[in-house]
């Protein structure tokens, strides 16, 4: 049996997690204080994922940039591909929180959405 020690990134509490592995399969997770920790540990040892946050250029808006995020977590290996698409994107104001800015970013099936409003000039 193999034991992997992780620090949960689910929230700022940063719980220390212990994952018991056998033949590449997760046997048990301990140290978490909420179900998110359990889910994070099971994913992290097999297929680590992250939410990516960045900014997208706005035209005709009350601000030059809006902040964006991937709607859900995407595979860690896709982060830089995702950033490339985000940096090529331009959006025209008005934009509202939750608006889809890029669909299916980096072939992940996940969309990039706005996390702040931009009003039209």
């Amino acid at each position: 049996m193999e034991i992997k020690e992780l620090i949960c990134i689910g929230c700022p509490l940063g719980c220390s997690l212990k994952v018991e592995m056998e033949n590449g399969q997760v046997k048990s997770v301990s140290g978490n204080t909420c179900p998110r920790g359990d889910a994070y540990a099971r994913k992290e040892v097999v297929n680590p994922t992250r939410i990516v946050t960045s900014t997208v250029k706005v035209t005709n808006g009350d601000r030059p940039y809006i902040s964006v995020k991937t709607k859900t977590d995407i595979p860690k290996s896709k982060i830089f591909e995702c950033m490339k698409e985000i940096n090529n994107a331009v959006v025209e104001a008005p934009v509202s929180i939750g608006d889809v800015i890029i669909e299916d970013v980096a072939n992940t099936g996940v969309s990039v959405i706005a996390t702040r409003n931009a009003f039209a000039n």
């Binding site: 929230c11 700022p12 946050t53 960045s54 902040s67 995020k69 996390t115």
Partner: peptide
């Protein structure tokens, strides 16, 4: 603070700073 991780206690979901 455009990164995520805000609001888990208050809103029970993970938000970015502007949200």
């Amino acid at each position: 603070c455009i990164h995520n991780g805000f609001g888990l206690h208050t809103f029970k979901e993970e938000l970015t700073g502007p949200e």
